[in-house]
């Protein structure tokens, strides 16, 4: 990647050891707990009046938020080299490829212009 840099990324020097400190960790923890409780109660409500599948979208939205928080702060991605970002995001991108290209088959079966 950045071949111009000749020095190593050295966690001892460049990154503060404490990252976000104990209050920070507790704050992240609070977000996760609230997210869990929220997702539980929202799942009990019928959100189909907004649009069909709204419940799924909300549940996944909360899960993604929780994942992002865990990744960024507990797993220190926020302070990690770009390469770590790339491998984390890249894997999810590949998963999206798998979902999207599989579902483009299933969602175009039977009905519509291309149906048979």
């Amino acid at each position: 990647m950045a071949e111009q840099t000749t020095e190593h990324h050295n966690p001892h020097i460049e990154v503060p050891n404490e990252h976000i400190g104990i209050p920070g960790y507790l704050g992240v923890f609070a977000v996760l707990v609230v997210g869990t409780i929220l997702t539980y109660y929202v799942a009990l409500m019928d959100l189909d009046w907004i649009f069909p599948g709204a419940n799924t979208l909300v549940a996944l939205g909360i899960a993604f938020t929780k994942m992002t928080v865990v990744g960024l702060f507990f797993m220190h991605v926020r302070w990690s080299p770009r390469l770590v970002w790339m491998s984390a995001v890249g894997a999810f991108f590949w998963l999206t490829i798998m979902f999207a290209y599989t579902m483009q088959d299933y969602l175009t079966r039977g009905t519509g212009f291309f149906g048979h």
Binding site: T36, Y40, A43, D48, T56, I62, M67
Partner: peptide, 16 residues
């Protein structure tokens, strides 16, 4: 974090 909503929660609104 993903298994919980996907397996336990989706569809629970039908309880209404």
């Amino acid at each position: 974090i993903f298994l919980f909503p996907l397996l336990y929660l989706l569809g629970r609104h039908y309880e209404h």
